[in-house]
Simulated assay, not measured.
Amino acid sequence: MMPELGKYEVEVLSSYAVSILLIVALVVVSILRSRKARAALDEVEKRGRKHG
């Protein structure tokens, strides 16, 4: 059930596709950065427990 987009169908659908890809890429990058930051914080906590 897709609306009639006329002569701009390719442009509209491609812009939707690009938008979805960018959103997915941002989510993936955010998850990866979160994991990296969490690992770094865990390392700092381990070092703090050894010396403190």
Rank of each mutant, 00 (worst) to 15 (best):
A39K: 14
R47V: 11
K46E: 12
A40L: 15
L41M: 14
S30Y: 03
P3W: 04
R49T: 11
S34K: 10
I23V: 11
I20W: 10
A17D: 05
K7R: 12
E45S: 15
I23K: 01
G6I: 02
A37E: 08
L22I: 02
E9S: 06
R35N: 08
S19P: 03
V27P: 00
E43S: 11
V27T: 02
R49Y: 07
V29C: 01
P3D: 06
L22F: 03
E43K: 12
S19G: 02
A25V: 11
V28Q: 01
G6Y: 02
E9I: 04
M1C: 06
S14L: 12
K46R: 15
S14F: 10
L13Y: 07
V44K: 08
L26T: 09
G48S: 12
A25T: 02
R49F: 11
E45H: 08
A25N: 10
A17Q: 07
G52R: 13
S30R: 05
I23W: 00
A25E: 01
G48Y: 06
I23D: 11
H51I: 15
S15F: 07
L41Y: 13
G6L: 01
Y16C: 14
A17G: 04
V10F: 07
L5H: 06
Y16V: 11
L13F: 08
V12D: 12
R33D: 05
R33G: 04
V24E: 03
P3H: 03
M1H: 09
L41R: 14
M2Y: 10
S30K: 07
K46A: 12
S19K: 02
H51M: 15
R49W: 07
S14D: 15
A17T: 12
A40Y: 13
V12C: 13
V18E: 01
V24K: 02
L26A: 08
S30I: 09
L32A: 12
E45P: 00
V29N: 04
A40I: 14
M2S: 12
E11F: 05
Y8T: 03
P3Y: 00
G48Q: 11
K7L: 02
R33Q: 09
E43T: 05
V27D: 02
E9R: 00
L32D: 08
E45L: 14
L22Q: 10
S14V: 08
R38I: 15
E4S: 04
M2E: 09
G48H: 10
K50P: 00
E9A: 10
D42Q: 14
V12M: 02
L5F: 07
K36L: 15
V18K: 03
D42S: 14
S14E: 13
R35C: 13
V24M: 01
I20V: 13
L22P: 02
R49H: 15
V27Q: 09
L21W: 04
G6W: 00
L5I: 05
G6D: 04
K50E: 15
K46W: 13
V28D: 00
A17K: 09
H51P: 01
M2G: 08
R49E: 11
